[in-house]
Design a protein around this nucleic acid. Structure first.
Lengths: 227, 227
DNA sequence: TTGAAAAACTGCATAATATCAATTTTTAAA
DNA sequence: TTTAAAAATTGATATTATGCAGTTTTTCAA
């Protein structure tokens, strides 16, 4: 068992232990409360963040104040490294969706590692290329699918992120406000409510207070892929 | 003057000449006619493509047959490398928008170069990170701007891609079908026509047959950024 | 437990966008 | 040129999404 027990599939998992020791040497661990800002759009990056536990949202706020969520990151994800690599300011803000433990790694350590260990660079390239494809795909979905289809799709994606100790057929609880969901789908909170009501009546899900319990993913997948 | 006279700002420009010699050694140059397919979504990548002259569109076709253009690539751009790096199939198709000369570089040569020269890897990381930010930004724009605003924005972007030997104040001719434009904006060809008519009446542009002549970019920029 | 405050929900009016069915214009080949 | 095919355009109509106002429910802290 590794000293650094990174979730399998995460960018850092499986890297040489010495490299990780060096990368994490000057890290700064911090617990962020729900809603707390981790970094703000336009700030100059001083390092990267590794999510040890919890969930965060990457989002942009438009001129009318509406928030659009670009991505929901999970434990095991590395965030903020695009801006460091591109040598640009952060293109979006990041805040905790729930209480989260996050390690800050100074950019010097990150860049040193990148120069010294070819593996990390290669891993990042692969990861970035993959993420790029996912994002490009999302772009298509957004412009060509209805609010109903987009919400169904996002619920399927969120179900993956929120499921723990999952057994086949088990329901998954998503704990996210209607407003955040609207920001993720690219619509208003009212529309989210309307569509959720429809899905609830069709038996696909259930709402417990503000939590959403997904029962029938299959049907949601079918709606998301329709046309 | 370089042997490989790559457009400045393109991924390959400024790399050591020896590296480029090696990278381009087994290339296969080919001329594609307008509309001709370069690679199809879902195919397994055998290499990467470098656009020497011309323009191509990267697009996805949805279940109803509608085409959505993800990106318009220009001379100097490298395409298809995301899939090679991610070790995945192509997430979208690519076809020539006009007659284009394109070099195919076998993936072995590309990957060899990546392992042997750290510069290319670093350049790609930077480029990918940047593109990612642009795309993420585009996603926000699409979900929160109207068709009118999106079309104005795309016209501004296309003007950059289509301008040659440009002098300040000079008009730029965009040669793209209403249907491709619709695919780029994420709407129907009818809506594109309606908005173009409005812009024409306001004196921002002129249509000559199916070509679009951009006169007043400033106004288009203003519309694109409104709210 | 209770009482704000925040979030979620509902209905209705309005606005934006898509669809369909012509008609006209442009293009490119004979 | 001429002409058929492709593309662009227009108008009428249907569908979908938004904004607002008010009500109800949930949450959280006193």
């Amino acid at each position: 068992m590794d000293k650094w027990d990174f979730k399998s599939g995460s960018i850092l998992s499986g890297l040489p232990e010495n490299d990780l020791d060096q990368l994490m040497a000057h890290r700064l661990e911090q617990v962020y409360k729900k809603g707390e800002l981790i970094f703000r759009e336009g700030a100059y990056p001083q390092g990267i963040f590794y999510i040890m536990a919890g969930k965060v949202k990457k989002f942009k706020v438009d001129e009318s104040g509406r928030e659009h969520i670009v991505y929901v990151a999970n434990a095991g994800d590395l965030i903020g490294y695009h801006a460091v690599l591109a040598e640009e300011r952060y293109p979006d803000s990041t805040a905790a969706l729930e209480e989260s433990r996050i390690a800050f790694i100074p950019k010097e350590d990150f860049l040193d590692m990148l120069n010294h260990s070819g593996i990390l660079g290669r891993r990042l390239l692969k990861n970035l290329s993959h993420e790029f494809g996912v994002l490009a795909n999302g772009l298509t979905l957004f412009t060509q699918k209805s609010v109903r289809e987009r919400l169904a799709l996002q619920l399927v994606v969120l179900r993956e992120k929120y499921k723990v100790d999952f057994q086949p057929g088990m329901s998954v609880i998503i704990n996210m406000s209607r407003e955040d969901l609207a920001g993720l789908v690219g619509t208003t909170k009212e529309n989210v409510v309307r569509v959720l009501t429809e899905f609830k009546q069709a038996g696909m899900l259930e709402t417990r207070g503000r939590k959403i319990v997904i029962h029938d993913v299959g049907q949601l997948v079918r709606i998301a892929n329709y046309r």
